[in-house]
């Protein structure tokens, strides 16, 4: 490999806004002048839709299944601002093994040397969030991605998934796997949600690299099948994504996280629950909680 390609994996609980965030980061990185590829690692195969006017592209696995062999031009498609889009694909729901599918698809990209041939600077893997089996851990092991960012809201289930991911990263960190770059706090609206994510990041030995507010602009862009960076380039939201992309482009040092043991995580959540209850009942809290 001639140049050092920056390979990044974005994980997070399903529905938390991973693909939206990834696509906006990709679009923003392209705007900043990077040659970017986004690889959707989810059988839903809709990671890159908003980079291509809401359209689906043929997946690596479907093409492989139909033809037995794939060429790069059959699976790599250009999207907004020249972002290269790939969808790993997968089996129909309830059939086969999606995890193995991810492994197969990622292997194909390696075999075809697409990153080198297209002179890619940054690869973003957008991965189904709950690391349910070994297949979904592939981008974070075997030295494929170097840095992992996790998208989470302040909802407990999203944080729970992030904590699981941290456990996965910690497991592979000693054997050359990816390390954690940081947390992307998404859908931050209520003032306390920032404090919750901050607190979680502090306790697990990582940091928040950007706070992405909940925004109507995102909804509007998604409905048009576009990223915010494309459809509302001058909006405040687009500026957030550009800043986030710049942070990621500059990011070099990742670390092994310290996930909380499950019991401790529940205890931590219970602590926050009673804090929130006190706030709701009018007992004023200190400024650190955003009030």
């Amino acid at each position: 490999m001639g140049k050092d390609i920056k390979q990044i994996a974005i994980y997070g609980k399903g529905g938390i806004g991973k693909s939206t965030t990834s696509s906006n980061i990709s679009a923003a990185l392209a705007k900043l002048g990077c040659r970017v590829m986004q690889v959707g690692c989810d059988p839903k195969s809709d990671s890159t839709n908003t980079l291509r006017d809401g359209k689906y592209i043929p997946t690596v696995l479907d093409t492989l299944r139909a033809k037995g062999k794939v060429r790069a031009d059959e699976i790599v498609f250009e999207g907004f601002n020249g972002v290269y889009c790939v969808e790993a694909g997968g089996p129909a729901p309830g059939v086969g093994c999606a995890g193995r599918g991810i492994i197969t698809a990622v292997e194909q990209l390696k075999i075809l040397k697409v990153f080198e041939d297209l002179n890619i600077d940054i690869v973003l893997y957008d991965v189904l969030g709950d690391v349910v089996c070994g297949g979904f851990a592939v981008p974070i092991r075997e030295g494929i991605a170097k840095h992992v960012f996790t998208v989470t809201s302040s909802d407990f289930m999203a944080i729970y998934a992030a904590n699981n991911l941290f456990a996965g990263i910690q497991k592979y960190s000693a054997s050359g796997g990816a390390l954690l770059g940081g947390v992307i706090a998404n859908s931050i609206s209520a003032p306390y949600s920032k404090s919750i994510v901050d607190d979680f990041a502090a306790r697990t030995g990582t940091r928040v690299i950007e706070y992405v507010p909940r925004s109507m602009t995102v909804t509007q862009a998604e409905l048009q099948g576009k990223t915010v960076v494309e459809s509302a380039p001058d909006s405040d939201q687009a500026k957030v994504y550009l800043r986030l992309a710049q942070n990621i482009a500059n990011h070099n040092q990742s670390q092994a996280p310290s996930p909380l043991p499950v019991a401790e995580l529940h205890e931590w959540a219970a602590g926050w629950a009673s804090e929130l209850l006190k706030m709701e009942s009018g007992e004023v809290r200190e400024a650190a909680h955003g009030i």
Binding site: L61, L64, R65, G90, P91, A92, V95, G96, C97, A98, R100, G101, T104
Partner: peptide
């Protein structure tokens, strides 16, 4: 083979 593993062998 791998195809059956990924997409199911039925």
């Amino acid at each position: 083979q791998e195809g059956e593993i990924v997409f199911g062998g039925a």
